[in-house]
Design a protein around this nucleic acid. Structure first.
Lengths: 214, 214
DNA sequence: TGATGTGAATAACTTCACAGCG
DNA sequence: CGCTGTGAAGTTATTCACATCA
């Protein structure tokens, strides 16, 4: 039976799996071997039923009356997400944000590897950032194919984002994490996730305003 | 009648309002005066009904048979979000990411102003980043009160995030945009929005894997 | 006529309540 | 007994279908 197609899996379930994973890694680092759904979700603002339901879309991972084996569950969720194998990533645009992301320390524990950086600014091409030589954006197609990169982080200025994403789609990129403040044109064959600082701040501003009124 | 309490407003509606706003500003920059819900949503992967429904929670903003006045709608949405007034923000942690955010060019068009930067590293305190002198984290309470800051961007290492957020809550901060790779302890009086690069990449990895199977 | 605005219908998600099992 | 796993119930969000009005 196709375990992942029993029913459609909620979007949010996937996001929460990431959170569970992070928490589980923390527990693992603290040498916790077994943990209950209550414990895992205690600091995540998520109910334990939600946790169990989320996992239930993919199978059974716990021991009734006992809880979950931390190590086992980490591997299981990594496998579900597809992050059990090394994932090679390129960064396009090495302005301040792109540069910061290349050096991002939050990837420890993760199998994400940044293997290339690109920019179209001649002043930046050839420079070294962390362990990477900045490549010419003009060579994106050639280089990404050579490096077998499937996923990129896009951190170029707004005006360039759409054109770059078109190029990326053409050279076989399937997933883009977009930090440019623009909603890039969604082709159906492309997975895009937008991180938008201004949107987040606006959301906070709204909640803040609402809270003040109460 | 309390226009915002007719019914509860979906979380996602607020996020989408931000997207509409961005699109409207782009149209405005192109000197478009009036626009239909179809046009606005065309490049956003959102249905026009959704757009109209989202606005309907807050009132009526269009002209039947005609569409929406771009300028008027921009102001209306800004007012809804509470971003029609200048919003003063502090950045805590001026590592690479914090520094990049201070110089973030995506805030043009917005009324967000970064008015202070803090770090606890003596090597960084007193240095200048963009137009700001980096202040000592020890003075957060005093300075944020003085500067009337209600919202902060948190970009400190994971291990420090929770302690800092506790401090912030104590000194009257009401909203945190958290870039630290940790879910900070949600006090009820605090609005928190987490931006988590690893989670986003994991989400993409999952969608990528799923797409490959099809 | 042509677009908006909105109740009603549908779909998606979460919570509940409890059966199942170590 | 305790904690997991899960249908059913309840809640929330989206889509539909059409009344409305410049």
């Amino acid at each position: 039976m196709n375990i992942e197609k029993k029913t459609e899996i909620p979007q949010e379930t996937i996001r929460r799996l990431s959170l569970y994973l992070r928490m589980l890694r923390r527990l693992n680092a603290q040498d916790v071997k077994v943990v209950s759904s209550d414990k895992i979700t205690k600091f995540l603002n998520i109910s334990s039923e939600q946790f169990r339901k989320d996992l239930s879309y993919f199978g059974e991972f716990g021991c009734r009356g006992v809880g979950y084996n931390v190590n086992f569950l980490i591997r299981a969720i990594e496998k579900i997400l597809g992050t059990d194998k090394i994932c090679r990533i390129a960064v396009i645009g090495v302005g301040k944000l792109g540069t910061a992301l290349i050096g991002y320390p939050g990837f420890t524990d993760f199998k994400f590897q940044i293997v290339a950086a690109f920019d179209n600014d001649p002043a930046k091409i050839g420079k070294k950032i962390e362990n990477l030589i900045v490549l010419d954006s003009a060579d994106v197609k050639k280089e990404l194919k050579r490096l077998a990169v499937k996923m990129v982080i896009l951190a170029v200025p707004a005006f360039a984002a759409n054109a770059v994403s078109e190029d990326l789609a053409k050279c076989g990129i399937k997933a883009i994490l977009n930090f440019s403040p623009i909603n890039i044109n969604m082709r159906r064959e492309l997975c895009v996730s937008n991180v938008d600082v201004a949107c987040e701040l606006e959301g906070l501003a709204y909640r803040l305003k609402k809270k003040m009124k109460e």
